Amino acid sequence: MDISVVKYSGEDTGRKISLSEEVFGIEPNDHAIYLDVKQFLANQRQGTHKSKERGEISGSTRKIKRQKGTGTARAGSIKSPVFRGGGRVFGPRPRNYSFKLNKKMKELARKSALTYKAKDNNIAIVEDLSFDAPRTKEYIKMLNALSLGDKKTLLVLPEGNKNVVLSGRNVQNTKVITADSLNTFDVLHADNLILSESSLEKIDNLLKK
Rank of each mutant, 00 (worst) to 15 (best):
M105C: 11
M1E: 02
S199R: 07
Y139H: 07
N205T: 08
L188W: 03
D2W: 05
L129F: 10
L35G: 05
A145Q: 07
V176C: 03
T184C: 04
Q44E: 12
V5M: 06
A42G: 08
D128V: 12
S4T: 14
L154E: 05
V23E: 10
E22R: 14
R93L: 04
R93E: 13
K104I: 12
F90I: 08
K16Y: 07
N43R: 09
L35T: 03
I194A: 04
G71E: 03
L41C: 09
D204V: 13
Q67G: 03
K202P: 00
R135S: 14
D120E: 15
K137G: 06
R93F: 00
V23S: 02
Y8F: 13
K119H: 06
G85N: 12
S98G: 13
P94G: 01
S58D: 02
S4F: 01
S130F: 13
T48Q: 12
S51T: 15
K152P: 12
L129D: 00
D132V: 10
P134E: 03
T48Y: 08
K119T: 08
G59C: 03
E107S: 11
F24A: 01
K111Y: 05
I123G: 05
N192Y: 12
S77E: 08
D36K: 08
E53P: 00
Y8H: 09
T61G: 11
G87P: 06
K106C: 02
I26C: 02
K141I: 00
K16E: 12
R135W: 01
E127V: 00
I177C: 02
G86F: 01
S77H: 08
L166P: 04
T136R: 12
L155I: 11
I203T: 01
E27D: 12
N121V: 01
K152C: 10
I203Q: 07
L101F: 10
G160W: 05
K152Y: 09
K202A: 07
A118H: 08
Y34H: 13
Q67P: 00
A179I: 14
T48C: 00
K106T: 07
I194H: 00
N173W: 03
Y34N: 12
V165M: 15
G14D: 05
K152E: 14
D120F: 10
T115V: 02
T61E: 14
F83S: 06
R15E: 15
N144T: 04
S198I: 03
K208E: 10
E11Q: 14
K175C: 10
V171Y: 09
E201C: 03
N122F: 04
V5G: 02
D180A: 08
N144Y: 11
E21K: 15
A113H: 11
Y116N: 09
I33H: 02
T153V: 15
S51E: 14
E53F: 01
K65D: 07
G160P: 12
K16F: 05
A42K: 08
T178Y: 03
E138L: 13
N96I: 04
